[in-house]
Amino acid sequence: MRRIVFSLSVSLDGFFEGPNHEIDWSRVDDELMAHMNDQFRDTSAYLTGRITHELMAAAWSATGADPDAPPLAAEFASIWLPTPKYVFSRTLDHAECNATVKRAVDVEEIRALQRRPGGDMVVGGPDLARTFRELDLIDEYRVYVHPVLIGRGRPMFQAADEHVGLTLASARTFGNGVVRLSYVR
């Protein structure tokens, strides 16, 4: 059965983006980019909200079309662009980049997707992840902690009433100081 993995980069103080939606604080170098390519190469589907999808589609479509793109970025574009995507949105009727629009998260539909053959499915974006977390649909949390304090912004998780115990599955430190923590239920 395919697992659902939540993957997100955060600052040490727990923000995934700054107060003006900036992510320029993240420390993605060649080592981390190569790791990301390895992590996502076998992904069978991306599950995202509208904003995350639109940002990713714009960035990786441009990178994929750029003959001068850095090789590791071009490789990620070649991984991300053809992979099926499910975009959860109440406002979109259509989404680009091999995407299917869904109006709401239906647990039975997600479980049916999990039963299909293939690699992990990756849920992206904290808002959608909150819904998946509340519905107990996340199997693994991969958090990339960047060695920077940004002070303000959008936190990785909004306040919630449930307590979820997790087990550390692995940790990895990259040369640029980023630490990847992987937790499973």
Results as ranks from 00 to 15, higher is better:
residue 92 L to T: 04
residue 45 A to P: 01
residue 86 Y to E: 06
residue 117 P to F: 10
residue 70 P to N: 12
residue 117 P to C: 08
residue 19 P to A: 07
residue 114 Q to N: 07
residue 49 G to S: 04
residue 158 Q to Y: 01
residue 140 E to W: 04
residue 56 M to I: 13
residue 44 S to P: 03
residue 37 N to P: 00
residue 139 D to V: 08
residue 39 Q to M: 14
residue 16 F to T: 02
residue 159 A to P: 08
residue 80 W to R: 00
residue 31 E to A: 13
residue 69 A to R: 05
residue 1 M to G: 14
residue 32 L to H: 04
residue 181 L to M: 10
residue 28 V to Y: 02
residue 58 A to V: 09
residue 108 E to N: 10
residue 8 L to F: 12
residue 91 T to R: 14
residue 131 T to Y: 09
residue 139 D to C: 08
residue 87 V to H: 03
residue 31 E to W: 08
residue 60 W to F: 08
residue 15 F to T: 02
residue 179 V to C: 04
residue 166 L to V: 13
residue 177 G to S: 10
residue 73 A to W: 08
residue 73 A to V: 11
residue 40 F to G: 04
residue 141 Y to D: 04
residue 63 T to V: 15
residue 122 V to M: 13
residue 126 P to E: 08
residue 7 S to H: 12
residue 43 T to M: 06
residue 4 I to T: 11
residue 170 S to W: 05
residue 111 R to N: 15
residue 112 A to K: 04
residue 40 F to V: 15
residue 133 R to H: 12
residue 161 D to A: 13
residue 91 T to H: 10
residue 161 D to S: 09
residue 28 V to L: 13
residue 57 A to Q: 00
residue 114 Q to V: 08
residue 99 A to G: 00
residue 4 I to D: 03
residue 89 S to V: 07
residue 5 V to A: 14
residue 104 A to I: 11
residue 97 C to E: 12
residue 155 P to R: 15
residue 8 L to T: 14
residue 93 D to G: 15
residue 99 A to F: 00
residue 142 R to C: 14
residue 108 E to S: 12
residue 113 L to K: 01
residue 80 W to K: 02
residue 138 I to Q: 06
residue 133 R to G: 10
residue 73 A to Y: 02
residue 151 G to L: 11
residue 33 M to P: 01
residue 123 V to F: 01
residue 16 F to M: 13
residue 62 A to K: 14
residue 161 D to M: 05
residue 74 A to D: 11
residue 84 P to E: 07
residue 6 F to S: 10
residue 5 V to H: 08
residue 171 A to L: 07
residue 52 T to D: 02
residue 20 N to P: 00
residue 168 L to K: 13
residue 181 L to T: 03
residue 89 S to L: 05
residue 151 G to E: 06
residue 84 P to Q: 07
residue 111 R to A: 12
residue 42 D to F: 09
residue 113 L to H: 01
residue 145 V to F: 02
residue 53 H to Y: 10
residue 26 S to H: 10
residue 123 V to T: 03
residue 30 D to V: 04
residue 59 A to Q: 10
residue 68 D to E: 15
residue 71 P to G: 06
residue 86 Y to T: 11
residue 183 Y to C: 12
residue 58 A to E: 14
residue 106 D to Q: 06
residue 97 C to Q: 14
residue 117 P to M: 09
residue 9 S to R: 06
residue 142 R to N: 13
residue 157 F to L: 13
residue 164 V to L: 11
residue 46 Y to H: 04
residue 8 L to G: 01
residue 69 A to L: 08
residue 133 R to I: 15
residue 118 G to E: 01
residue 137 L to Y: 01
residue 16 F to W: 11
residue 137 L to T: 04
residue 137 L to N: 01
residue 55 L to G: 09
residue 166 L to E: 03
residue 157 F to N: 00
residue 31 E to R: 07
residue 100 T to C: 08
